[in-house]
């Protein structure tokens, strides 16, 4: 991954989240407070200021991960901002202070921030949260990278399916957990936006 791809990844995420803003809000309205799409769109939109940074040559991956994290921390209210944000800040040292990293480092970076999301949110697979997409996706990526061929278009579809599968789960973390069994039958909005992120991973890094 290069710094350019890193920037493209977050620009892509901003664009697709904006395109799905209403759908994300609708999903959140069913089992949460109805602002997941609006919140994420605001935070990712704020990131445009980061890309305007004129000192391009001084950009490095570790610094970018930290900056993207800090931006999300201070612009996205609610759990998703703190989860994405703190995970990216914490995973930043995994990336080199250089303009590119190899695939192994990329996977380790994703793995580190997914672990941080799990830790901070105290969530596991099956709790009906973003972890239901992030954890299996990073495990799949790790396994297939070790085999030598990460087929990202396949992973993109799987991520979408894993998000869809949260419909049958009862929420055990987050606002939706207050609904108990009534949370069943709705897709978790955090899992949906996570699947959008993996779609961007495919779009930007899959070529």
């Amino acid at each position: 991954m290069t710094t350019e791809q890193f920037v493209q990844l977050w620009q892509c995420f901003g664009t697709v989240v904006r395109a799905h803003q209403e759908h994300l809000d609708d999903l959140d309205r069913a089992i949460g407070d109805g602002d997941h799409g609006t919140n994420l769109t605001r935070g990712l939109g704020k990131m445009q200021d980061l890309w305007k940074d004129p000192i391009d040559t001084e950009r490095n991956l570790a610094d970018l991960s930290k900056k993207v994290g800090m931006t999300l921390l201070s612009t996205v209210g609610g759990a998703s901002g703190a989860l994405w944000g703190s995970a990216l800040v914490k995973a930043a040292p995994v990336l080199p202070s250089a303009s590119a990293c190899d695939d192994e480092t990329l996977v380790l970076w994703i793995e580190t921030f997914v672990s941080n999301i799990e830790e901070r949110g105290k969530a596991q697979v099956g709790d009906k949260t973003m972890v239901d997409v992030m954890r299996p996706a990073v495990n799949w990526l790790k396994a297939s990278t070790q085999e030598g061929s990460a087929r990202l278009p396949v992973l993109r579809e799987l991520a979408r399916q894993w998000s869809e599968d949260t419909k049958d789960l009862q929420a055990r973390r987050g606002r939706a957990s207050y609904l108990g069994a009534r949370s069943i039958g709705h897709v978790d909005p955090g899992s949906f936006s996570s699947a959008l992120w993996w779609a961007c991973v495919d779009r930007v890094l899959g070529g």
Binding site: L73, G78, A79, A82, L83, G85, S86, V89, K90, R120, G121, R173, G174, R175
Partner: peptide
């Protein structure tokens, strides 16, 4: 008050 207030607080403590 609710869960994500604690996520914000824990994150702030780290920062």
């Amino acid at each position: 008050d609710l869960g994500s207030a604690f996520i914000a607080a824990e994150t702030a403590r780290d920062l």
